[in-house]
Structure formats: C-alpha cells, structure tokens
Design a protein around this nucleic acid. Structure first.
Lengths: 234, 234
DNA sequence: CAAAAGTATTATGTTATACTTAATGCACAA
DNA sequence: TTGTGCATTAAGTATAACATAATACTTTTG
C-alpha cells in the first residue's frame, strides 16, 4: 500500500499555507483547553493577535472548521464549539454533475455491495409491520410484465425502506447521500448498453424472502435482483 | 421520510450568509460553463466584480470549494477545476474521540456489511498475484491456536488488501475513512463482553475461499468470519 | 415598581486596499 | 540553442474601516 504522495488535505501542491497551520493550531488549542460542545472560544481578534497572524487568516481557518461542523458562529455571541455532523458535508458535495464517470460507477457498485451485505442487519431488526409496509409498496407497482417500465420513485421507496429497517442511522445517511447519483446513472449513459429493467428477482420476490427466508437467502436474492446491473458493469 | 428541518449546511442558525450564496453561485456557474477538470476559472477579482461582492467573499467561498476538493489554486496559474475529493475531508473529521457510541457501533456494522457484500467485486477483479499476496499476509500470522492473540495490524493489512482488490476507489476510501474507528472499538468498551478473538472462519480460510470458491461462498464465509462480532452486537 | 421601548455595545460579517510571494513567460546574453 | 534573469500576474496575507445583528443596559411609561 503506497500512501506516499497522497495529498491529504485541500492543498494539492505542497503549499502548506498559513491558513493550514492556523487551522491545525486552533484544533490543538481547542483540544488542549478541553473545549466541549457549547463552549465559547476566544474572539477572532484575540486569536489573531495571540497567534501572531492577521484576522483574515484566522477567519479563513475558522471558516474551514465551521464547514466541518466543528464550530458555529453567531453575531454577537461569538463562536461556539458544536458536535460535528460527519455526513452532511459530503451530502452537499455529492451532486453528480461534478463527479466523473468512474466515481459514479464506483458509487453504484458501492450501493449494491451495501444492499447485498445488509442481510443480517435486516433480519435482526425487521418487524412484521415493516414487511407489511414493503408489501404495500410493491402492491403499488405495475403488474409484473416481462419488461416493466422502470420507475425510479418506486425504486427509491422500496430500497430506501430496506435501509430504514436496518436501524443503522449511519447506513441510512449513506444511502441518502448516494441517492442523487442513482437517478443520474439511470438517466445518463454510464452503462454502455441501456439498462434492461427486467428483474431476475423482483421487489416482491425480495419481500417474500424477507418474510420466509434468512440472511443468506436474502443475500443471494438481492445479488440476483441486481443481475442486469452486474452484467453491464463487468 | 421527513427531510424537513434537516440542517444541511454549516450554518446552524439559519443565517444564510453571503458566502453561502456565492458558493452556490460559483457552483452553478461552473456547471453552466460545463467546466471539466483542468479548466481554469476566472480570477478572484473578476469573479468578485462580476458577482458584485468583495474579493474576500469570493475567496472564502472558493476556500470552501477548495476544501471540498473541487478546485485547486496555484500562485500565478490561477485556479483550476479538479476532480472532487469526496472523502478526504471526512477522513480528517473522523477521529473517534468525538463520535458517540451509537455512531461507532453503526460504523462497525457498516464495515461488516461492506465486507460481506463485496464478494462479487472481489471475484470479478482478483488476480492470482493478489491471492498470493493474501497468502503471504496470513503466513505472517501466528499459528492458528484456539485463541490467537488479536493483532490489529494484521487485521488491517488483511482486510485492507481485500478492499484494494475490489478496484473500487471509493470503497477503498471509505475503508480508510472508517479505519480509525476500528482500533477505537477494539480498545474501547463498545461491546458489553470482551471480544472473543477466536475466528469461526480464519483469514486463511477466507483466502482459500477466494482461491477456490465463488461470490456466494465468500459472502457466507465472511459472515461466519464476523460471527463473534455479530453475537456481541445483537 | 415592572414591563416595554429605546440605546449602546460587542463580535462577527463584509468591503476595500495595499503589500508579499511564487510561478510563468519573455527577453536578452552566452 | 540554452540558460539566466527580470517583469508580470494571480493567489496569499495584512490592515483598517464599516455593516449588521444580538445582547446588555438604560430610560421611559403604564
């Protein structure tokens, strides 16, 4: 594993700027002072003079911290430490227009990996009410003809419910985060050939497996459900 | 799904600041102009006058974009569009001290979901060289006694290699991102009972499956490999 | 005397300007 | 042709001043 040369931050050209240093300084300072959520930190000018830099630099560094959800600033009250919200940040970045095709493809794969692998969580936490809801969702679907019209909203509703059932909030956040890319993939031309919307295992089939099967049969069913995507990707 | 009230950005107090607007403006501008990686964007002063704001505001907005890996600035050359670096940002924020226990538990589950679900990618892209390398890694491991000493570095090497094999860069980044939490989980007391380090399926067993099995048998083997974790979580 | 209205203060948000630094390109010399 | 050096350019940094909004304080008024 060659991690050398990986640019970890925002500065791809080795330019360790003053703001970078101040950002790190502030972080270690907060750590030293054992600041916890809600605590007010010194005002910008104080930090600036104390660190021997201009207020501009301090502001830019704090802007980054604020962006990472580490602090929150209000007008007169000053700036306070907050609990970081890990994923909200990526959620914003994750809009597909700016992602290159390879990353989109990666994300699409990632989605399938998640849904195939979630079997155990699903079976551990699913309730009969959940299953009923899933049946209700698939009941809305058009009759299972050979090639049903692909309905993206149905798709999202169904698979979204699966994520809900896992009870894993982080997982659900990830799904919400990846969601925008799916529509894009379906509408775009990531796949060479158009996606066949004939499902090997239908949504209804998956619910049946959840009702009567076990994690292992679910994994296989979900894998089969994704068959045409896999064929296109590989 | 109730998305109302979700605080999406960095400004928790509804203060939509000028920088926020300019940030969004710049993004849509880049999108309009169909900028792709490598393209140079107008210089700060131009953008400032064009948008009718001060250079400072433009700079702060661009600082955020740079932080998100969307642009990269050099001294004379100006600022260019780059492929967004989705995850490096979180990687930095993801240090476990600030995550609550539930999130840590969620992340741990997520890891297992990923590794169980990655079977198909693995088999599609694994080479004999990869398998040899995996065998080399497990060869370093202590002899498989009933309760082997749990070696976190071995663990990381082995499972990290699996992520590498998938050839999915996004997936690998996720792993690197989640990595710090694993050590924390093992050292901390997330689990009620101490983790039994006896593996149901050993690392060597997994390699054997990769050599001779298929995605389905791999998923089951990996599930089994995680058995003691599952027992502890559920 | 207490509640409301108004005023002062304060810390962040924003603007403007000037200076510093490093990379690029061009010109001139070897 | 090659290489050195200077001018130029655009980002990085610094400073000062004003705008804005939230808080604290004071005054008015019932």
């Amino acid at each position: 594993m060659d991690y050398a040369g990986i640019q970890h931050g925002q500065q791809q050209h080795e330019q360790v700027t003053l703001v970078d240093k101040v950002e790190a300084d502030l972080l270690s300072f907060f750590n030293e002072q054992q600041f916890k959520a809600g605590d007010v930190i010194p005002k910008e000018v104080e930090l600036a003079t104390q660190l021997g830099v201009s207020r501009t630099v301090v502001r830019e560094a704090m802007l980054r911290l604020r962006m990472r959800g580490l602090i929150d600033s209000k007008k007169k009250r000053g700036t306070v430490i907050t609990n970081p919200d890990l994923l909200s940040l990526i959620e914003k970045t994750m809009y597909p227009g700016i992602l290159d095709d390879q990353t989109l493809r990666d994300i699409f794969e990632l989605r399938m990996v998640l849904e195939i692998g979630m079997g155990d969580l699903l079976f551990e936490r699913v309730t009969q009410a959940d299953i009923d809801e899933l049946y209700a969702i698939v009941a809305d679907e058009p009759v299972n003809t050979e090639k049903t019209i692909f309905n993206i909203d149905q798709e999202v509703r169904f698979h979204g419910k699966l994520y809900d059932i896992t009870g894993n909030e982080t997982l659900r956040r990830f799904q919400r985060m990846l969601l925008p890319t799916f529509k894009y993939v379906h509408e775009g031309d990531i796949f060479k050939k158009p996606v066949q919307h004939k499902k090997f295992v239908s949504h209804r089939g998956l619910v049946d497996v959840i009702q009567h099967g076990n994690p292992e049969t679910f994994r296989n069913a979900m894998r089969n459900h994704f068959e045409n995507y896999f064929q296109r990707l590989f």
